[in-house]
Each structure stands twice: as C-alpha cells, then as structure tokens.
Write a protein that binds this DNA or RNA. Structure first.
Lengths: 179, 179
DNA sequence: TGGTGCATGTAAGGAGTTACATGATTCG
DNA sequence: CGAATCATGTAACTCCTTACATGCACCA
C-alpha cells in the first residue's frame, strides 16, 4: 500500500499531471519507488475518488486532455498517518543471486557475462544519481531539515548502487580466481 | 517468473516436502528469494502438472499426508534454460526511503525510532546469516566451484545486511547533527 | 477423546506487469 | 491532411499476501 503515498508525496512537492508524474517516477523518484504510467493513472483515479487529491480547474474533462492534480487536506492527513506507521523491510528477492545459486547446480555458461552486464547497468544508474545529486543538492541546499532528509534519501539510492558495483566487482574477481 | 526456478534449485539440492521447503525458504534460502507456504504449495502443484517434478512413491495421496518431491529431467532442463537467460535488475522499492521522503513534506515525529527499529532488524538478520556462514561454509567447503558460488550468494545476503546496518547508522548520525 | 502440532491446501483480494486503445495537439 | 507525439486511459494476467480450512498423528 505504498504507491498512493508515493504519489501524494510527489504531488505535495509539486502538483503535476499523470504524465509529469510518470516522468518524475522514471527519473528522480525512481531511486526509492518505481511505478509505470498505468499504475499511476489507476492510482490517481482512486485518490481522487477518495477525496485525497483533486484535478485542478479545467473546463471540460476530456479523455486525452491534460489534467493537473493537487493534494487536498484529507490527502495530507492520510500521508501523515502513513508516515507515522511502522513497517518491516520486505524480504529480499534477487533474481541474480538466485541465478547464481541455480548455476551452482546446473552449470553456468553465461554467468560471468550476466554479472558484467549488471555491473554496467549499476554503474550507469550510479552516474545518473550522482548527476541528480550535483544538480539538486548543491552544498547550500543541504541545510534545512527537509532538504537534508531528501538528500539522505538520494544518498540511499547512490550508496545502494555503489554497493552493487563493488559487490559485483568482487564477485567477478572471485569467479576468476577459480578458472 | 522466478519462484518455480527457486523451488527447482532447492529441490535439486535436496528433495523435500512442501513444509520442508517452506522452512528452508524461511531460513537459508530466504537470503536470495523469499516465499510463503501458500506460494510454495501452489507452485509445487504447477511444477508437477508441467512434468518438471514428481511426488516420490507414496501409497495413497491423501490431504494432510506428507509428500516428498524430486526434480525430473525436464525440470532440470527448464532450470538450465532459465539460468542462461538475461534479466535486468528490478527497479527499487523501499518503503523506508519513501517514508523519509514523505517525512520531509509532512513532518516526522517517529522517524528516528523507525530507523533504529530497522537498524536492529538488519543487525539481527546479519547475525543469522553469519551463523549460517560459519555452519555451512567452513574454509574447507570453499574450494569446489559450486560451493564457491553458493558461498558467494550467501556473501551477497551478508554484505547487503551489512550495507543497511552501516547506512542506517550513518543516517541516524546525520539526523542527529540537525537537532 | 480431545487437544496440539504437523502438513497440505483454498479463497479472496491487492499490487504490479504487459499489451493495447483512444483522444488531443502540433507540425511539416 | 497525415504522421508523430502528447496524454490518458482499459483489459487481462501473474504474482504475492492474508486469512482461513481440512486432514493426519501423537499423546496425555
């Protein structure tokens, strides 16, 4: 049940249309929560239904016509409740680690290449996030508490990508020692 | 579509009943793929249907009576195909990071406590995995290629937990600097 | 014989994914 | 006016989660 709260947060930061939200989820929001445009439009409908958000004044609501949403007080309250809730970390599911474990049983012709491919992907993601950090969090924007929190979250994304880059590098070295 | 392959891998390592599989997923397999017993029984049914596994000889199949499964050649082949496939890493979804970002918008009374709670959980998980490493991977079991692969996978789980322990520790220190 | 644990399931619903559909706008 | 692009959706499906149901074995 986190997607609606991700959307509420994004809309509080800046009222947006569905497509704008999709773009923001693709780039800057994606480092802590990902979503497709189908999910976003469905959830926008539900949030509007629930009275948590509303479409900004528009003459006639027509399919294909841009709709801008903003958060209503009820939506802000709901988000406040959710933030205060406790929630355990979801148990892990890594298809890559599973592949490695399966490879131990049935052999692994292309495993090395797959690890290298993932390494390249994580390196790319890391660069993207670092660029966002340079752009959105220059030193002077790390002072107020909200900015410090947002920067911390981005650091989470960056540090995780760095973790995978380092881990995959080590794993490849370990694989090489054997062959 | 990874759960069936997780089960095939587990059954290749050691033929098991549904409940035994559930226990193995809860403890040692959980560090790369998690699953509940409901998922497991459903998937065992599908795998049997597909001819990838079979229930070991039992007089009469009765509900409530234990069933042991083993992998058939077709299942091993299917797993081999899957291992050779490429798959991109799933984009991230962290409810904790999302909470922090939302807290930047609506305030965060209990956020520190929630971070500390997660820190304790990850510390606990880390200790469990380390115990598994001591028990299952003593130095002499790190020589053959399959063992080295399996150990590498466990290292992945351990290193990820260590990552979160360190990251959360740093985040808490960062939060303190402000107040 | 009745409870407790073991073992295997069913049912319902929520969340995410993939493929496709439709209207509006812009631009050559 | 035709094509590309912007923008908003629908539909179908798979997967996961949560709650509940049922049968067997043991043992006090």
């Amino acid at each position: 049940m986190s997607l609606p709260h991700a959307i509420l947060t994004a809309l509080l930061e800046k009222p947006s249309s569905g497509l704008e939200l999709t773009r923001r989820f693709d780039k800057s929001i994606g480092y802590f929560w990902s979503a497709t445009h189908q999910q976003i439009y469905r959830e926008l409908g539900r949030l509007e239904q629930a009275g948590h958000i509303r479409a900004l004044p528009s003459p006639v609501p027509v399919r294909g016509r841009r709709k801008e949403y903003e958060v209503l007080p009820a939506g802000r309250a709901e988000l406040g409740d959710w933030v205060a809730r406790s929630e355990d970390p979801k148990p892990m599911r890594s298809a890559l680690l599973l592949r490695m474990r399966a490879a131990a049983m049935v052999g692994a012709p292309g495993l090395r290449a797959e690890l290298e491919r993932h390494l390249a992907l994580h390196r790319g993601q890391l660069e993207e996030y670092r660029a966002i950090e340079d752009r959105d969090f220059p030193p002077e924007r790390r002072r107020t508490e909200p900015d410090r929190l947002r920067h911390l979250v981005l650091r989470g994304g960056i540090d995780l990508e760095r973790f995978w880059v380092e881990w995959l590098t080590g794993a490849l070295a370990e694989l090489d020692r054997e062959e």
